[in-house]
Design a protein around this nucleic acid. Structure first.
Length: 714
DNA sequence: TGCCTCATAGTTTTT
DNA sequence: CTATGAGGCA
């Protein structure tokens, strides 16, 4: 039997044992949210609920697998019949079983981001839009607008007006491309990530028998990270739960970090309105972090404009404060972080130490440094396994077996044939599907001209005609692809080959090809599956959500990086960055180190640019952290004086008012750029204080006030 | 039409 | 520095 009294606090116990009716759990960071879900799973099964009646929707597949596994170990029995996964994977599975009902009589294919972008490009070319316009929105931008509009369920012009005003000259074009994109998908039986959710919503809204069937099956629904659901996901939950549904939503409004994807914090706040009689449970006591870390994270939340009714507290004591470290540059930052990792490695297992950053590329210098010194690491976020070119090549054959109308897959599969490009592929595609006499002749001609095309079609026919297990199909495809792989990637094909072998290993666990393909695109990253022992973790903050480590290092805490430059324009975006910072810091259990490099490499100029510390660090009161500086010898020393805060930089030019006199000969006040100083070297001018006095940030030296005569403008 | 070269712009986050 | 896309040549 499970000892709920000892394992859970009162609030947790209430959430666990309230199994009937809607429950909303507002769970602060580290308050035992996962524990609550795990014990609730166990409790339900203990009460005699059939695991098959449980649906657990989480944000990543990994999260749901972990929770189910933990519940299994508590119960000592298997829960493999319980349904768990992401909204997207659940949608995919449900839609696949009902594909005819949503207008795909012959099934459909799930696309990834790159596929979607390429369609945008094709549609644009097809319509002949923006020819010769170098500043025309890129395919990634086009798709961004389209999916944002869908996820927020607002028209494109509204999105544009609110967050991409500079694109408004292209509004008309974008509307056309958006329509063309939708049409292309329909014609080729393709479905993107957003479609999964919208199609399921529509299916549930219109197909009453199915809805009833699912409502009857899933008597207990749990949704994790509810603050990051968007409107359509909320509707899906509503459909599944029915009117008297037993649904538990768990989330933390202070940790909402997916607004860019349409996540709507209002969902969690309105949950009690949608589900009448909702019982609200608040988990406020923190069991993860030592109090000094919580003192710091509470400060971060204090600066938020949307006030959160939260003040985390903990019984865990510590006499060491979180650290703010100022390396001279991002290069030395990498070295100092490696030193820190080695040092932390004496106290913790390396996989219990994480380095977090805002964007995937920010870890590159660190990855180099770690590799050089021989420390193993595991990276989360950034490029994914299924996005690698060779994997997509292989999958294209399989996609063609499943869906011969998948034009994107045809393009990929024929790419390597010499003399065949996108136009020819389109022609061949049309010819293959029309069956007209002329087209047959054209096909015959092409087959004669391109021998590899013959081989490809023969191989596909062979695969189509025999029903085989995914692993067998994959084996055949890999054999066929082998020569192409070697030809296409002569430099590194052994490495890619190894990746493909990994792919076929995963396939062994599947009986259905569609499921295999779907899982792969819906976050089935095999690298993630095997959690490396004793490898330090590198992760984007987004991918770190819901995880925890004994020691956490956050790097690149400077303006334009964290917060991201793109988020500096709108107050709303900056708020999300703040919550992101909050999420990052609350991952730490015992030690937290914030790195603020004095300069960062700028690949546009090929030089190091001086930085401004992140506002999230600047606003922290001195009492909640200890400050360390990199000394010129390369070590760290405690800084005695408080850091001199720079002048507000919001209105860099206008701030100081018009200059009373003509500019000093060497300093042009209209241009606050870079300068050089005899002693301090290169620096960035942040503000003009008087006609001939400037505030300058010198990498490694901090902010100085300098007379213009001593500066050489660059 | 395909393929190569050169210019240019621009760096989030994820299912 | 790298990805994207325009433009030229075969």
């Amino acid at each position: 039997m499970i000892d709920f009294d000892n394992e859970l606090n009162e609030a947790q116990r209430e959430a666990v044992t309230t199994t009937e009716g809607p429950v909303l759990v507002i769970a602060g960071a580290g308050s035992g949210k996962t524990r609550t879900i795990v014990y609730r799973l166990a409790h339900l099964v203990n009460q005699g609920v059939d695991p098959a009646q449980i649906l657990l929707l989480t944000f990543t597949r990994k999260a749901s697998q972990e929770m189910l596994a933990r519940a299994e170990s508590i119960l000592g029995r298997s829960l493999h019949t319980a349904s768990g996964g992401t909204f997207h994977s659940f949608s995919y599975a449900t839609l696949r079983m009902n594909s005819a009902d949503i207008g795909f009589d012959n099934g459909f294919t799930l696309m990834d981001r790159a596929d979607s972008e390429n369609i945008c490009k094709d549609v644009r070319d097809e319509m002949g839009l923006g020819k010769g316009d170098r500043s025309y929105p890129k395919k990634a931008t086009l798709l961004d607008m389209i999916t944002k509009s869908r996820n927020k369920e607002l028209p494109i012009d509204a999105i544009m007006e609110r967050e991409a005003y500079h694109l408004s000259p292209y509004l008309e074009d974008m509307l056309k491309i958006s329509d063309g994109y939708a049409q292309f998908k329909r014609e080729h039986a393709l479905v993107d990530y957003d479609d999964l959710l919208f199609l399921l919503d529509k299916l549930l809204a219109t197909n009453e028998p199915l809805r009833n069937q699912l409502q009857a099956r899933y008597r207990y629904i749990m949704v994790d990270e509810y603050q990051d659901t968007n409107l359509v996901q909320a509707r899906i939950v509503k459909h599944l739960a029915g009117t008297r549904g037993n649904v538990m939503a768990v989330g933390d409004d202070a940790q909402s970090i997916y607004a860019f994807r349409g996540a709507n914090v209002a969902n969690i706040l309105e949950f009690p309105k949608i589900f009448e009689g909702t019982k609200i449970v608040r988990l406020e006591k923190n069991y993860r972090s030592v109090q000094p870390i919580l003192d710091l994270t509470n400060e971060i939340l204090k600066g938020a404009t949307t006030k959160f009714d939260k003040h985390l507290y903990s019984d865990l004591k510590s006499d060491t404060l979180p650290q703010v470290v100022h390396p001279l540059s991002d290069q030395t930052q990498a070295r100092l972080v490696v030193d820190q990792i080695l040092e932390l490695g004496r106290r913790y297992m390396l996989h219990d130490v994480a380095v977090l950053f805002r964007a995937g590329y920010q870890s590159f210098p660190l990855e180099v440094a770690l590799t050089r010194i021989g420390i193993d690491y595991q990276k989360f976020g950034g490029i994914r396994f299924h996005e690698a070119a060779h994997v997509k090549d292989v999958l294209s054959y399989i996609r063609l077996v499943l869906n011969p109308h998948d034009l994107l897959a045809w393009q990929r599969a024929m790419e390597h044939i010499k003399g065949v490009g996108p136009k020819t592929v389109a022609k061949i595609y049309r010819a293959m599907h029309s069956g007209l006499e002329n087209d047959k002749k054209y096909m015959a001609k092409m087959l004669k001209k391109h021998e590899p095309l013959q081989e490809l079609l023969a191989e596909l026919n062979r695969l189509r005609s025999t029903v085989q297990k995914p692993s067998a199909v994959l084996e055949a495809v890999l054999a066929f692809y082998q020569p192409i792989l070697i030809e296409k990637y002569p430099d590194d094909y052994p490495k890619r080959q190894a990746g493909l072998e990994q792919l076929s290993q995963i396939a062994v666990g599947y009986t259905e090809m569609e499921q295999f393909i779907g899982d792969l695109s819906l976050d089935g990253d095999p690298e993630d599956e095997k959690r490396k022992e004793n490898a330090v973790v590198l992760s984007t903050v987004h991918s770190a959500k819901g995880l925890e480590w004994s020691a956490v290092i956050i790097i690149d805490l400077v303006e334009d990086r964290f917060p991201s430059r793109k988020a500096m324009q709108r107050a709303e975006d900056l708020e999300e960055e703040r919550r992101l910072m909050y999420v990052a810091c609350t991952r730490a259990k015992r030690e937290l180190k914030l790195f603020v490099p004095g300069s960062v490499y700028n690949r546009a100029s090929g030089m190091s640019d001086p930085t401004l510390p992140s506002p999230f660090v600047l606003e922290l009161p001195d009492s909640v952290f200890e400050r360390l500086n990199e000394s010129y010898g390369g070590g760290l020393e405690q800084r005695r004086r408080a850091y001199e805060p720079p002048a507000p930089v919001l209105a860099r030019n206008e701030d100081e008012g018009p200059s009373p006199e003509p500019a000093a000969p060497k300093a042009d006040p209209s241009k606050l750029g870079f300068c050089k100083h005899k002693i301090f070297g290169r620096g960035k001018i942040i503000a003009q204080l008087e006609s001939n006095k400037f505030r300058v940030n010198f990498p490694g030296f901090g902010l100085k006030v300098i007379i213009g005569d001593y500066l050489e403008l660059l």
